[in-house]
């Protein structure tokens, strides 16, 4: 586990490039060579058979170094869904979307038409997997009839619409419970990335505070600044703890069994994201507000990812419904789960 973390930090740390955008093809090759690319997939799907605890180390690290590779999409989402449905996995980076983003697509006689909305890394992956009308559909990139309309999120990561016109696709029946699992897997992965990005912003702000001199001393010596950064550190710790604990529960109880923990993780990490970005920008002053400064690499990801794979509002509402169903007597057991 520690070796895995060290490897991930070394691989992603070396690839840090705040000026670049889009898929980091070289980093992706390294991820494939080191087994990080398909970390949790079974060996039969070309995976490393890692646990969600392993994914915790890798994804927090990927978030911390703003790795420009679709790890969550390839490993936790598309690879899992296609493999679970019995579809053979193509090589290379993969992406997936949920039923809402695929709602405009229909499949007739093995040919798909319609638009897949905001496909993460859509322009750069070898295939996209999506649930359509009770089936799992695998769209191979480069097939005739695909038009890519490039888009992006707040961090300028590719979020592309794929317009399909009579595109030949592979399909298989959607396994039971797969829609909910896909949603939870995406949220778990996104929570871990958020925690990593939060750590990155905090480290930058703590370092900047010790370097920036005002009133004749580093601003880190001002108690007002210390108190602000301690608040940010607490939010980072909350994001890390909730996401890592959700992974622990997913290993123990399965993804569906960890649904409360995952909902709590995405909601809590998403809430932390805004506060971490606010404080770390405040500490950086106007400099962090410029294109030139690296802080934006972390904070734009915090802002982008908190709203992707459902925002706090959605997850909190779900948790609120569970709390109401539990009632006064059941609320504590809901918090404890299967511990």
């Amino acid at each position: 586990m520690n070796e895995l973390l060290e490897m991930a930090e070394s691989v992603f740390g070396d690839a840090w490039d705040s000026a670049a955008a889009g898929l980091d093809a070289e980093l992706w090759r390294t991820c494939e060579e080191t087994g990080l690319a398909r970390l949790t997939l079974p060996e039969s799907a070309g995976g490393s058979e890692g646990s969600f605890a392993d994914a915790t180390a890798v994804l927090r690290s990927a978030g911390r170094f703003a790795a420009r590779v679709p790890l969550v999409e390839t490993d936790l989402m598309a690879g899992w869904l296609a493999h679970a449905a019995g579809l053979e996995l193509p090589g290379g980076p993969l992406s997936a979307v949920g039923p809402a983003a695929a709602a405009g697509v229909s499949v007739v006689d093995g040919r798909a038409s319609g638009t897949l909305r905001r496909v993460p890394w859509g322009r750069a992956v070898s295939a996209v997997v999506a649930p359509v009308d009770g089936q799992v559909v695998l769209v191979t990139s480069g097939a005739a009839g695909i038009r890519v309309v490039e888009g992006m999120n707040l961090a300028e990561e590719p979020r592309d619409d794929l317009e399909l016109q009579d595109v030949p696709v592979r399909t298989a029946p959607l396994p039971a419970g797969a829609l909910e699992q896909l949603r939870l897997r995406a949220a778990l992965g996104r929570s871990l990335l958020l925690a990593g990005a939060g750590r990155c912003a905090l480290e930058m702000a703590a370092r900047y505070a010790t370097e920036r001199v005002q009133f004749g001393r580093p601003i880190a010596k001002l108690q007002a600044v210390q108190q602000m950064l301690a608040l940010a550190a607490a939010e980072v710790a909350a994001a890390e703890a909730s996401a890592s604990a959700a992974a622990l529960e997913a290993d123990r109880d399965g993804i569906a069994g960890a649904s409360v923990a995952i909902a709590a993780a995405k909601a809590r990490a998403g809430e932390a994201a805004g506060e971490i970005a606010r404080i770390t920008h405040q500490v950086h002053g106007a400099l962090g507000f410029t294109r030139e400064h690296d802080l934006r690499v972390a904070t734009t990801r915090l802002w982008a990812w908190r709203d992707e794979d459902d925002a706090e509002a959605v997850w909190n509402e779900q948790l609120g419904d569970l709390a109401l169903a539990a009632g006064a007597a059941g609320i504590w057991p809901l918090l404890v789960g299967r511990d």
Binding site: A245, A263, E312, N316, E317, L324
Partner: peptide
Amino acid sequence: PDRGRRRDLGRLVAHYRTLRRM
């Protein structure tokens, strides 16, 4: 309770779970 109240309630659930884990 309306949707806003259910969200507020759920937010506390997310916080409680996180604090317990920490």
